[in-house]
Amino acid sequence: MNTYSRIIGTGSYFPEKIMTNKDFEKFIDTNDEWITSRTGMKERRVAEGDMYTSDLAAEAAKKALEMAGIKATDLDGIIVGTFTMDTSMPSTACRVQHKIGAGHCFAFDLTAACSGFIYGCNVANALIKTGSAKKILVIGAENLTAGLDWRDRGTCILFGDGA
């Protein structure tokens, strides 16, 4: 019998602080019309203070587990697609494992930039199909605003935080 994967729940989380295009006009040479017409962006969320990628990821994870109707201890593995990990060791995935109270399961970060979630889903699908795991939490999470050059008008307007 062929084994297939299924998405049994989804969740997301964004920090509360909103930064609008207009906010950028105060410190760089740009404006709302320019940003909107070239990118489609109007606003983005910014993680403040002690909020790290694993915090965003854990909040999104809790919502996905709730929708799926399973407990964190039911998970066989956690994959976090990110390039803004809290620390390179422990991995963001291990921090999420701790924060959501998952039991003994594998946990690792997958670094493929913006493709991180797609790569993570493909890896999880392969692990499920081969019988190595049954329930895997795949997360795409970034705290990008912490690493932006706020003087570079070409990049700082483009990114936001979320999971």
């Binding site: 989804t10 997301s12 964004f14 990118t39 489609g40 962006m41 109007k42 606003e43 983005r44 969320r45 965003l56 999104a60 697609g81 990110t82 390039f83 803004t84 493929a112 930039a113 913006c114 493709s115 991180g116 979630f117 797609i118 993570g120 795949v138 997360i139 795409g140 999470a141 970034e142 990008l144 307007i157 483009l158 990114f159 936001g160 935080d161 979320g162 999971a163």
Partner: peptide, 13 residues
């Protein structure tokens, strides 16, 4: 329009 580019988080969110 709401969240800009959140890299690996755009698709799942």
């Amino acid at each position: 329009h709401q969240y800009a580019n959140t890299s690996a988080a755009t698709i799942p969110t």
